[in-house]
C-alpha cells in the first residue's frame, strides 16, 4: 500500500512543483529586465554617474600647472615626462614638454596627490581603447607656456579662477588617513606637501606652491 501512496505522492508532487515553477517564471514577464545596455542604450553616460574623484584617465590643466615636477617624481613607472626651463630674459619658468603615456599609466593616483594646485588629476573618462600605442601618448604642451605662479593675494583672473577652484576641490576630497598623519619615512615629503595643501582648503590660494 505504501508503494502506491508514494507513487501517487510523486505524481502530485511533480505536478504541483511544475505548477509552482511555471507561475514564478511567468511572473517574470511582468517585471522589467535588469540589463544595462552599456555603451549606447543607457539614459546617462556611465562617466557622468561616476564619483568626482574617480581614477580614470589622467588630464592636465596647464593654466594652473606650476611646473614643480612633483608629479613626475611621484610617478612610480615614469609615465610622466616634463621639461621645464627658466627663461633668462623674462625670468619665467617655461614648460616646454608635458607628456603622459597613458599606455603605461596604472591609475595609481600618486601623481595627483603631491600636485599643489590639482592641475594633474584623474578624469571620469575610462574608455581608453585605441588603435596604436603612439596615440596613447598624450602631449599636453604644443608650444612652450609659462608656468602658473600662485599670487599672494589670491587668484583674481576670471579665466583661471574656476579651473583653480576645481583643482583645489579635487585636492580637498582626498581620502585622508583618519586620525594620525602618515609616519612612513619614505613618503614623508609627499604626505607633508599634500597635507599642507589640504590644510589651506576653503581658499583658492595654493598655499604651499613651489614658485
Amino acid at each position: 500500500m505504501s508503494a502506491v501512496t508514494s507513487w501517487l505522492q510523486n505524481v502530485t508532487a511533480s505536478c504541483s512543483t511544475v505548477f509552482e515553477g511555471l507561475s514564478i517564471t511567468f511572473s517574470h514577464f511582468f517585471r522589467k529586465p535588469y540589463t544595462v545596455e552599456y555603451p549606447d542604450r543607457i539614459e546617462t553616460r556611465v562617466q557622468d554617474t561616476l564619483p568626482f574623484r574617480y581614477r580614470g584617465m589622467l588630464e592636465v590643466d596647464l593654466e594652473i600647472c606650476t611646473g614643480c615636477l612633483a608629479c613626475e617624481r611621484a610617478c612610480p613607472i615614469e609615465c610622466i615626462v616634463i621639461e621645464a626651463t627658466k627663461d633668462k630674459a623674462t625670468r619665467q619658468l617655461m614648460i616646454n614638454r608635458f607628456d603622459i603615456d597613458l599606455a603605461k599609466c596604472m591609475y595609481c593616483g600618486l601623481c595627483s596627490e603631491p600636485c599643489p594646485t590639482g592641475s594633474i588629476h584623474h578624469t571620469r573618462e575610462f574608455e581608453g581603447s585605441d588603435y596604436s600605442l603612439e596615440s596613447m601618448m598624450r602631449r599636453y604642451v604644443k608650444f612652450p607656456v609659462a608656468a602658473y605662479k600662485p599670487k599672494k593675494t589670491g587668484e583674481d583672473d576670471p579665466e583661471i579662477m574656476p579651473v583653480l577652484e576645481r583643482g583645489m576641490r579635487y585636492l580637498d576630497e582626498f581620502a585622508q588617513p583618519a586620525a594620525k598623519p602618515a609616519s612612513g619615512a619614505t613618503s614623508s615629503s609627499e604626505s607633508t606637501s599634500s597635507s599642507e595643501s589640504t590644510s589651506s582648503s576653503g581658499t583658492t590660494d595654493p598655499g604651499s606652491g613651489t614658485g
Binding site: K32, V36, I42, E43
Partner: peptide, 14 residues
C-alpha cells in the same frame, strides 16, 4: 524591491 535595481546605470553604479 527588486525593481529599484532595474532603473538603469545611474543608481547601480554611483
Amino acid at each position: 524591491d527588486y525593481s529599484s535595481l532595474s532603473s538603469g546605470a545611474s543608481q547601480g553604479l554611483s
